[in-house]
């Protein structure tokens, strides 16, 4: 693979994804409104009910809004990862995915470019959200705004790779929309995004373990610590391993030997 060509390809995919995102303004606002509703309404409503004691990385008691902000960043990455994969199923049905996959570059690289472009678009949404949250008095340390970038990229890659993996096995748009509901909501609610795990354990030991096995929990914790200028090595390592696993399965799923469009009875012949 020629480095210049690889760079040109990544640039092309990144520009395309950005243009599509900008052209679909409704998508941008929907992506932003979702976490803001949680921040403005849900968090405000539950502020007095859900007290959060001092747990790392927090040095003092924090408001519930502050606690759920990293979870909402995770939510943006999660929805974006899945939306990006949904667009791949759409692209595949519409044919533009074929155009990408017959490009003269290794398939793993093309899929990686697609993932990274999706993450770049999500990062933009995250920072707009953080800006609004700042006015809502969610103000992590300034260094946190920079330290969180690698954590967001890795988490975004993991969630994008998960979506990619699912998209390689699901062949119809309608089915994939269903799968998203079975993935997004359980992943989000059975995690530490909305409540600390010690609180979950108080009410359900089983849910506590489910949340512990949920990769999204570790992505959120990785982001949470980074946002407060700390590194949660364990969460980071688990997120990395999950990223590698999901990516490997996704690349296998898009392997021509399997047929990149497996479907019952085969394709149009």
């Amino acid at each position: 693979m020629n480095l210049k060509h690889a760079r040109s390809c990544f640039k092309g995919i990144l520009i395309r994804e950005s243009l599509r995102f900008l052209n679909q303004r409704a998508r941008f606002f929907a992506a932003l409104v979702r976490p803001l509703v949680w921040l403005f309404i849900f968090a405000a409503g539950f502020r007095s009910v859900l007290g959060v004691s001092i747990i790392p990385p927090y040095q003092t008691y924090v408001l519930y809004e502050e606690y759920i902000t990293p979870g909402l960043l995770g939510m943006i990455m999660l929805f974006n990862g899945m939306q990006s994969s949904l667009s791949m199923v759409y692209d595949r049905e519409m044919g533009s995915m074929r155009l990408l996959l017959v490009s003269p570059l290794p398939r793993w690289f093309l899929l990686l470019c697609k993932l990274l472009s999706g993450v770049a678009v999500a990062l933009l949404q995250v920072y707009v959200f953080l800006l609004i949250a700042w006015f809502w008095e969610v103000r992590p340390p300034v260094s946190g705004y920079f330290m969180v970038i690698p954590a967001l990229i890795l988490s975004g890659l993991m969630l994008g790779a998960l979506g990619l993996m699912l998209s390689s096995f699901v062949t119809q748009l309608e089915n994939f929309a269903g799968v998203m509901n079975f993935v997004i909501f359980p992943m989000f609610f059975a995690s530490s995004a909305l409540y600390p795990l010690w609180r979950v354990r108080d009410s359900s030991e089983l849910l506590y373990w489910v949340a512990n096995l949920n990769p999204f929990t570790h992505a959120v914790e990785f982001v949470r610590f980074a946002l407060y200028s700390e590194i949660n090595w364990q969460a980071g390592l688990i997120t990395l391993l999950c990223t590698l696993f999901f990516s490997a399965v996704a690349i296998w799923g898009y392997d021509p030997l399997r047929g990149f469009l497996p479907r019952k009875g085969g394709p149009a012949t």
């Binding site: 092309g12 995919i13 052209n23 044919g95 490009s103």
Partner: peptide
């Protein structure tokens, strides 16, 4: 099946292809 991106202009579609081919 048509593989042009319907959200983009003709020029943007062609530039995208050129990038894919280095």
């Amino acid at each position: 099946r048509a593989t042009l991106d319907r959200d983009l202009t003709v020029k943007q579609n062609l530039r995208y292809f050129c990038h894919l081919h280095g």
